[in-house]
Write a protein that binds this DNA or RNA. Sequence first.
DNA 1: GACTAACATGAGTCATTCTCAGGTTAGCGG
DNA 2: CCGCTAACCTGAGAATGACTCATGTTAGTC
Lengths: 217, 217
Amino acid sequence: MESTTESAGLRRRPMQRRSAERYERILNVCAELLDEVGFAGLTTTEVAKRAEVPIGTVYQFFADKSALVHALAARNLETYMERLERRYGEAAPRSVEEVVDVAIDEFVDMRRTLPGFGVLDFGAGSEWSEADPRDLYLLDENVENNTAVARRLRMLTPFLDSSRAGSAEIELALRVTMEAADAVLQLAFRSDPEGDAALIAECKKLLVGYLGPYYVG
Amino acid sequence: MESTTESAGLRRRPMQRRSAERYERILNVCAELLDEVGFAGLTTTEVAKRAEVPIGTVYQFFADKSALVHALAARNLETYMERLERRYGEAAPRSVEEVVDVAIDEFVDMRRTLPGFGVLDFGAGSEWSEADPRDLYLLDENVENNTAVARRLRMLTPFLDSSRAGSAEIELALRVTMEAADAVLQLAFRSDPEGDAALIAECKKLLVGYLGPYYVG
DNA sequence: GACTAACATGAGTCATTCTCAGGTTAGCGG
DNA sequence: CCGCTAACCTGAGAATGACTCATGTTAGTC
């Protein structure tokens, strides 16, 4: 159930190489454009033009504009999780400080270098996720997604477990952590395109303080 | 320079009673509609129809849709700050726990009862604030706004001052606090329309832990 | 009552999302 | 090689919605 990589709203999944390439190209162009014109400035027409596909093709893959952006967010999240897994695999963190450091540094790095990452990182609580409240499935899906991420994060940080808390409590804490971190880092990059250093430091303090009690050496 | 109650994008300020009433009515309808159809579903046409004013009138007050929503957010913020000032005035908080309790309970209450508050509370980091990155003034204004709020919050919590930190550091901390609290509470209300109690409790823990060190009894 | 400036109106313009009828290609059996 | 089918591709255009502006209306003043 790769709920983080796929989402409702995908219309046809690219099967052949040619299609897959177009699909990726559309996503890449979408990311580029988000950096250039922002979310509200994004038009499907322009995406199609830049990706050199007819507009119809975009809508063959994605049910609507929101699905396109969702798919990009999912890809970003996937990339981020892979990077985290790799870093934690290379050198298992020995403290909450280390976990937080790695997670945030990786985030900051992606935000600086990966097109489109800034505009919608994971889209945890962003507008487009509740773009249309009539699409309640989106909301639900989002919550699921959020939980799935927390679950995955937990696997990456086994030493948080077996503390005084049950795993449900840990998942809750991780969801809170993600949401808060996302918001503060968003602020950091709003103040300074390169990421305000003071705010990034505060973000780490915030998370370490909150997660500290869950730590069991 | 009441930067929190007014914003660029206001075209004409209602001068006469009649105009002022229409202005308020438009804002109220906007709030109602946000609850019903969400941000993305909001149309200026519908706002005008419900407020029983011609569409042109809406645009006489507000430069564009974003300005309308901004104005509502500003009004919400103003209401919230007034409520906080009142509560803190009635019973001066004696600890960080009390400050956080009051601030969050008041927020939760407003979110439950005030139309439109949920969709855009203060709009700190929401999409519509960076709706169009070409409007950099919006971004700047937003940062200003953010800072102004932090400043105002600081006045409400004098006992945080004169601790080991300078007032710039306090303001930074308060901005971080606002951003994080907003995000976590947003999550709480996304999980449960009445506000997930566990998440609200976690939010308090998060803030108390973070602000604790700034406290000087 | 005549004059003026501020205010109000909504049909129309333009930009944008998304559809769908019709065209193209790929694969395959004969 | 041909004919057939199913999958895939295309972009003109329908539908919607933000926003304007020429024209009409009101309120204030002498």
